[in-house]
Design a protein around this nucleic acid. Structure first.
Lengths: 276, 276
DNA sequence: CGAGTCTTTGATTAGGATCAATTGCTGTGG
DNA sequence: CCACAGCAATTGATCCTAATCAAAGACTCG
C-alpha cells in the first residue's frame, strides 16, 4: 500500500514521500484476538489461556484515528491502556504552551492510570499519533488482576521501573548535554524501538541494486511520522535548532531525512556523538 | 546538640553556623525496633505484627557515616534498601564527570534494586549524605515478599509510580524553564520534604522574641547540608549560576542562605517564580 | 494549481557556561 | 585564643550555545 513516486538515489537531495506507509486499522477484535493480544503483552505473558480469558473480559477495545485525543491532562485518571496497534503520543502540556513529548508508544506498551497511581487525574495528554487500536481497563479492575495474579504485579513493577530508568536517562541528557548530542541519542533510541531495515530499497519500484557504493548500506528507517517539532519536544530544543542539527548530520551522511521522517545511515558516528 | 555561636538578627548578612545540627546515630537496631521501623514504611504499613516479623527477619541493618559510599554505579544491583534515619544522596555520574543529583532521600524512602528491576547493575551512586542507618534486603528476598503479600506489591508500584512522576516533572522543568525558575521550584520541593519551621528561633540560646518585625516570619529551614554544588546538580546548572540566583533571591528577601544551608522566607514569591 | 504545513536558513540576541580571582566560613593545631 | 589551610561561596568579565525573530523554499492535499 505504500504510495511512493520516485524514491531517487541515495546521495543527494531529500525527496517526496517519506517511507512510512500509514496503515489504518478500523476493526473490532474478537474475544479470541483480545486474548491473544493481551497474552503477547509483558503484563500477562506469564498467564495461561484460561487466566487470559479472565483478563480479556475486563478489557475493552477502542479505535482512534490520527490526531484524536485519547485523554487530556486534567481528566480523571481511571483507565489503564495498552496499545495493540499503531502509535500513541504521550505529551505533557506546560503552562506556556510548549509541550514536552514524554513518550511515543508502540504495540505492547501501556499508558494511563498505572502511572498515576495515587493520583486523581492524568498529568499528560495522550493522542493517537497514527490510527491505532487500544485495549483498556478500569483502574480498580486492574488492581483486582494484580492481586489475583502475582506475576502481573511483578510485570507491572518491572515496566514502571523501566519507564523510570528511561526518564532518568532523559534527565541526565537534559541536564548535561548539548543539543546535537541529545538529538543523536534520541535518534538512536527511536531507531532501536521503531526502526525498520533498508527503507529505500523495497517497494514495487524496479531497482538496479540498491546500494550504489556510498560507504554504509545498513540504513534504518524510523518507522513513525516524526516531525521536527516532535523531535524538538523530545529533546527540549526548538524546531529551528533541531532542523539545523539534522541538516548538519545529513551533510555528514550520518542520516537521511525529509518531511516527517528520518532514517539512520551511520549508526557508529551517531553513537560517537551521543556518547561523548 | 546544635553548636551555634551567634545567630545574629534576621535582616542583614549571613552568619556562621547554618542551622543544621548534624546528628549521628551509630547504633544497632533490636529486632523489635526493626519491626517498628519497617511497619512505619509505606511498603509494609498494611501488614500486621506477625507478618512484620516475617518481613523484619529478611532485612539487615547497616550504618554509614557521612560521605561513605553505599553503592556505586556499575556494582551488581542486588539489594533494596530503606533509609530509616539520616539522608542518602542518589547521584548519577556522567562520563564527563558532572554528576546529576537524582534524589535526596530521607527516612522511609527507598533506593536500590527495586528501580533496577531487570537490570544487572546499579545506574547510580548512593552516598551517605549524613550519618545514616539503612535497612536492606536481597532482591530475591523482596520478590518473595511481593508474592506473599499483595499489599506490598501495590505499595511498591505506587512508590515507583510516584518516583516516575517526580522524574517527569523534572524533565518538564529541564526542557522548558530557565534556571531561576528551576531553582525556585527545587527550593520549594526541598522545603516541603525536609523543611523545619523557624530555624533561627530555637536552640538553647536565650532569645527575646524572635521575629523582629521584618515582614514575614514563617521562615522554613531546609534541614539538610545543601551546598551550591548540590543545588546545581539538582537543577542542571552550574555552581556559579546557582550562586548568582540565590544572591538575587536573598537580596529580594525571599530566602536566607549561607554555607551549606538555605531557608525559605517568602514562599509565595518563590511560588510565583516557580509557576510562571 | 493553490493554500496550508513543515522545513530550512539567516541574522540577532540573551541566558548561562566558562574562566579567573577574591572573600568568607570552618575546624585544626600551635 | 589566634593563625592558617582548605573548602565553599560570591562576583566580575568574556564567550558561546541555542532561543528568538524573520523570511523563503519544499512537500501534501484538496
Amino acid at each position: 500500500m505504500a504510495t511512493r513516486r520516485r524514491a531517487s538515489a541515495a546521495g543527494g537531495a531529500r525527496r517526496h514521500s517519506p517511507v512510512a506507509p500509514v496503515r489504518v486499522e478500523p476493526h473490532r477484535c474478537t474475544a479470541l484476538e483480545k486474548r491473544r493480544l493481551l497474552g503477547a503483552t509483558p503484563f500477562f505473558s506469564a498467564l495461561g489461556d484460561g487466566q487470559l480469558d479472565e483478563v480479556a473480559e475486563r478489557f475493552d477495545q477502542r479505535n482512534f484515528t490520527v490526531g484524536e485525543t485519547i485523554h487530556r491532562a486534567g481528566d480523571p485518571a481511571e483507565r489503564l491502556s495498552i496499545v495493540v496497534a499503531g502509535q500513541v503520543k504521550i505529551a505533557r502540556p506546560t503552562p506556556d504552551g510548549q509541550d514536552v513529548l514524554l513518550a511515543l508508544l508502540g504495540p505492547q506498551e501501556h499508558f494511563g492510570s498505572l502511572l498515576e497511581l495515587g493520583d486523581a487525574v492524568y498529568r499528560d495528554d495522550a493522542v493517537a499519533h497514527t490510527d491505532c487500536c487500544v485495549l483498556s481497563t478500569g483502574a480498580e479492575s486492574f488492581h483486582a488482576l494484580v492481586v489475583r495474579f502475582p506475576s502481573v504485579a511483578n510485570a507491572a513493577l518491572a515496566l514502571v521501573a523501566a519507564r523510570l530508568r528511561e526518564a532518568q536517562a532523559t534527565i541526565e541528557q537534559l541536564s548535561t548535554y548539548p543539543v546535537p548530542r541529545r538529538v543523536a541519542a534520541t535518534l538512536l533510541a527511536l531507531a532501536d524501538r521503531l526502526g525498520t531495515i533498508r527503507p529505500c530499497v523495497d517497494s514495487d519500484d524496479h531497482r538496479g541494486v540498491g546500494n550504489s557504493g556510498d560507504g554504509h548500506d545498513d540504513e534504518i528507517l524510523i518507522d513513525a511520522t516524526l516531525s521536527r517539532q516532535d523531535l524538538a519536544d523530545m529533546t527540549g530544543a526548538t524546531v529551528e535548532t533541531v532542523s539545523r542539527v539534522l541538516s548538519d548530520f545529513r551533510r555528514r551522511g550520518w542520516i537521511d531525512s525529509g518531511r516527517q521522517w528520518v532514517s539512520v545511515r551511520d549508526r557508529a558516528s551517531l553513537k560517537k556523538v551521543a556518547h561523548g
